[in-house]
Every structure is written in C-alpha cells, then in structure tokens.
Design a protein around this nucleic acid. Structure first.
Lengths: 117, 117
DNA sequence: CGTCATGTGTCCTAAACACTACACACTCTC
DNA sequence: GAGAGTGTGTAGTGTTTAGGACACATGACG
C-alpha cells in the first residue's frame, strides 16, 4: 500500500535530480491533480489514485503503467475487458499459470507473438 | 448490464421449474441478501452485486462464477492477484492473446497443463 | 376463507473512493 | 529581503458502491 507511494517518490526524486521540472508541484500540475494530493500519495497518507490518474503518473515518470497499477492494487481495465469477454478461457489460463516460473510464461508469450495459430 | 439480471433470472427460473426451493425469496435467503435486492438485481434495477455476493449466487444457481462475474463487469480478485504479482509478464501475455481465436488459447492451456516447463 | 409464500415498490444509509481548496512554513536566489 | 517555488497539514466535498427495512399486492392451496 505504501509501496506505491515509495515507488512514486523514488522515481520522481531520481528524475528531479537532473531536471527541476520534476518537482512535486510541477508533476502534480502536469498530471492534473492538486499538489497536496500528490504529496499525500507519495507518503502513503491516502490510497493510491484512480486508474486514470495512475496511468498519467506512470507516463509522466516514465514508468510501466501496468507495474504502477499493480503497486496500487489495480489491474488495467483493458486487461480486465479481455478477460471478461472470454471468462472461462482466460480464467483457466491464468490460474494454470499462477505458479509457472517466469521463463515458462515468457516462452508462451514468444510462442504467441510468433503467431503460430 | 441488464445482461446480468436476465441471466440470473433465467437460471433461477429454470431451476425453480423443477424445485420450488428456488423461489426468489428462498434463493435470496440462502445467499444472504434481501429478497427485494435480488428482485431488483434480476430486473436490472440496480447494478450487479459485489464479487462475494455474485460468487454465492453463481454457486447457488450452479453457474460458473467467472462467467457470472464477467456478466457483472467484474474479474475475480484471485485472477487479479495473479496479474498484480507479475504485471509486465501477464499484461503482455493477455494483450497478445486478445485477438487469438479460442482454439489457440485452449491449445496453450493444454500445453501448460501438461506441465512442460 | 384464511394464511402462507411469492415477487416488488419506496425509502433510506453507511462506507469507501477520489479528490479539491486553502493556508502554512521553509528555502533559494537575485 | 522580496518574491517565487517547494512540500505539507487540515478540512471538506461529490459520487459511487452495496446493500437493508418494511410495507404492499397477488396468487396458491388446503
């Protein structure tokens, strides 16, 4: 939960080191939230923001949106939509892969990408 | 949205035909919601219920919980958790499979189940 | 005929979610 | 030493979620 804030804070600080456009206030402004809100987010004083705000934040800080959403306890709604369209199929697949090692999942991703159906 | 209600109503009615324990009231009681609430759900007068209630309802009506959750616009939280634990990996996989035909996905499921990693 | 069960209408609500508004203290920098 | 910019504290707000309470009319049935 405070994972999210810590991560965001670290990412912003690291950018801020080399570019003063990454102050809390300026970042807040660019992602369209109040500075005080972003401050609270970074310090874990409030729950992670909505999906939309999280994605804007990820973009701004040059981070992977799916990772940031995950830290915020969420799953991108476009992924959810894919699952909802074929729930039995994807539910089965995902549960099957729950305990598979990364490299096994990756192998499948590559297999699929090389489009062999 | 009213897909959910229609589906539930149909499932319950079909069970009720052969067994009068499947009246709206009795089902409501067994899944621990107020009859008036279940009535509104079946007629799409309110949004689909929470994940927990949806799963109880699916069980009661002998339906696949993932399917019923999908009709309710939700994705089971245990699936979400799997994704959240390895967001990049699963996000990539799922997006890759978005447009894959069912049989291709099924083939992968079988492959994985035959545990070849 | 009484009563039991059925489905439904109306009203209400307690939390959670997702933020905004504004004031304050500190720092730097020109 | 004035102004600009920085981060933070307090308080409050609109919306959505997820239902509960209770009364009512209708119908079945013994």
């Amino acid at each position: 939960m405070t994972q999210f804030g810590t991560f965001v804070h670290a990412a912003r600080r690291s950018l801020q080191a080399g570019d003063r456009r990454y102050s809390l206030r300026q970042v807040a402004k660019r992602i369209s939230v109040e500075p005080s809100y972003l401050s609270k987010i970074e310090r874990g004083q409030v729950a992670p923001p909505s999906e939309a705000a999280t994605v804007r934040l990820a973009m701004e800080l040059d981070q992977d949106p799916d990772v940031l959403l995950a830290l915020g306890g969420k799953v991108s709604s476009d992924l959810q939509e894919v699952i909802r369209k074929r729930p039995r199929l994807f539910a089965q697949l995902i549960r099957e892969l729950r305990d598979a090692p990364d490299h096994a999942v990756l192998r499948i991703v590559r297999e699929v990408r090389d489009g062999d159906w």
